[in-house]
Design a protein around this nucleic acid. Structure first.
Lengths: 337, 337
DNA sequence: CTGAAAGCGCTTACAG
DNA sequence: CTGAAAGCGCTTACAG
């Protein structure tokens, strides 16, 4: 491993001078800069980020927080993949690498913040977090730049889907198809169940705007965001009433589960019941019937989050919540009545 | 930030002694060890891994190589998610964190090996790599512990699916259903297209074992592993011949594409044609008809790879290739004739 | 424009 | 059982 000292020795300059040449800092004559750069290349020098981190306190490492208790899909989580992809693209261009933050290090339980300190992480992306208010508060209080892409968390910037607007738009679509008895399968609730609360609110608001009374017996809450949760919620709903013509599920997985429950009851979709979801995950294009949904613009969320984090990393003091509008994808699971 | 020196000052012991107490190394009296540990806790000490890395040369960071030119799904890649999940679980218990290795750092192109040196990465997991023989050779030559989970690469340990056996098993299943004209949609080929080559070989071998002559006109190679690739290959196949009763696709995505091509031609599955895939991704359970496939035991691959890497990290010199048998999942896309 | 000095936080031999 | 010394590779003021 060749170090800065090797280059210093070879060129006759001092280590600090070599450092400045390599980093383009300080003021050096063009000649020595070039000379140093060239012999660095000759020697096959690669900088030691660990050493640099120790002195500069900046690791160029971004910690990723991702917990999906409610989805239980690990890295298969649909949001995770897409958002992370575009986020990574943005951060890479500025020399940042992505590190998975866990609460487990060597079999011992540590906090995210401690983990960040361990590794001198520069910033954090929160994709999903199984609410743990203490942890969150610690992160918000620290001066670590942090962006959240799925939840609105007090004190932390966020870039996320316009859940309320998206839910309203979907209910509006169903209303325009002539549906007035629209059942709702809600997502699980927890302290920071932003999507769950906002989508439900959108559902209710849009009902009101269309002069449709909100009927609590048409809403059933799932315990998880996955299809099993949707399946169970739909069964409870069906056990109680069949007086509805459409089901709007708070996300696509819940909708898949509802589809299965409907099928078991011998109900046709969209013949008997229309079904709509939210999120826009890939599966929806392949199932039968193809699922009408509100797709989250995950690529835009990821890159906007990346850009925002970059600004915070550069020292800007901002704490904003940016909303990205989702898009209605009309497929074949809903019909006019 | 509290350091080892703060603890030294507080307890009256020297920094080296504190270090030993914290790490459980050297020989210290039980009393001083406890005393030091306690005041460390009191002070809220968190070790600085960066500093430790600089002196020990071990970062406890595992680099992940993941390129999916042929799937073009980024983090959505079905293998990626599952394998990484269980791999992560194993490595975490030993204090390792996962880092995404890219070839791009600060807009500049660097090699994986350089990236590893930059960050003092301890080991590498290769999930997929768009063949770049130079890069690969560099990695194999370095003494960096490395495990591959999708390809067999000269000089690098691997834990991967028994592709040959799996493909044979699937063809055997089709043969037992009475099929003798079995078309094959092959995956794209490249220098290290292990899965592609092995599955094709399995197909041919099993044909032979069943006394079915290999007919080249029944094989079509896709240019990508994704459904569009399968769709195009199936169309070419159909344009050439309809003299087959089953299609075995080298992976599930290719099978989805084939399904679509078949549907467009008005062919029923499995009524007219049986279709089988390979990989076992989640989608297969939801599409119509539900896809019969060979599922890779990704969880086992991930944990076996983790365990193997751990042994290499511990200094064991081994270079083995472990095969994990896939499992036949019979669903409803194939029928007897 | 260039360099000597000090320090980032930790650990590793080596003495005692 | 404990500590003084040196070093990991780099950068940051500060002089000159």
């Amino acid at each position: 491993m060749v170090t800065i000292y090797d280059i210093a020795k070879r060129t006759g300059f001092s280590p600090p001078t070599v450092s400045k040449a390599l980093n383009g800092t300080g003021s050096l004559s063009e000649a020595t800069r070039l000379y140093i750069l060239n012999t660095a290349k000759e020697l096959g020098y690669t900088p030691n980020l660990t050493a640099r981190t120790l002195t500069t306190r900046s690791s160029h490492l971004i910690g990723i927080i991702f917990e999906d208790y409610y989805m239980q899909k690990g890295f298969e989580h649909p949001l995770f993949s897409n958002i992370l992809n575009s986020f990574k693209g943005v951060l890479e261009t500025e020399g940042y690498d992505l590190l998975f933050l866990s609460r487990n290090l060597g079999g011992r339980h540590i906090s995210y913040l401690d983990h960040c300190n361990f590794r001198n992480v520069d910033g954090i992306l929160i994709i999903t977090i199984a609410s743990n208010e203490q942890e969150l508060a610690k992160l918000a209080e620290s001066r670590l730049p942090c962006v959240s892409v799925n939840d609105v968390i007090p004190g932390i910037s966020a870039v996320l889907t316009d859940n309320l607007g998206g839910a309203k738009r979907m209910v509006q679509y169903l209303a325009e198809l002539g549906h007035r008895r629209i059942a709702y399968i809600a997502g699980p609730g927890s302290s920071f169940a932003t999507a769950s609360a906002e989508r439900f609110e959108g559902y209710r608001q849009c009902l009101g705007e269309n002069g449709i009374p909100f009927d609590p017996s048409l809403t059933e809450q799932a315990f998880y965001w996955h299809s099993q949760g949707g399946y169970e919620a739909a069964r409870k709903l069906l056990a109680r009433t069949r007086d509805f013509t459409a089901i709007f599920a708070a996300n696509d997985s819940l909708a898949y589960g509802a589809l299965k429950a409907l099928e078991e009851r011998g109900l046709m979709v969209p013949g008997d019941i229309s079904v709509a979801g939210f999120d826009g995950d890939e599966l929806g294009e392949y199932i039968t019937p193809r699922l009408t949904t509100m797709t989250q613009n995950t690529q835009e969320i990821g890159s906007a989050a990346g850009l925002l984090l970059l600004r915070k990393l550069a020292g800007e003091k901002l704490s904003e919540v940016t909303r990205i509008p989702p898009s209605l994808i009309i497929r074949s699971s809903c019909r006019g009545i």
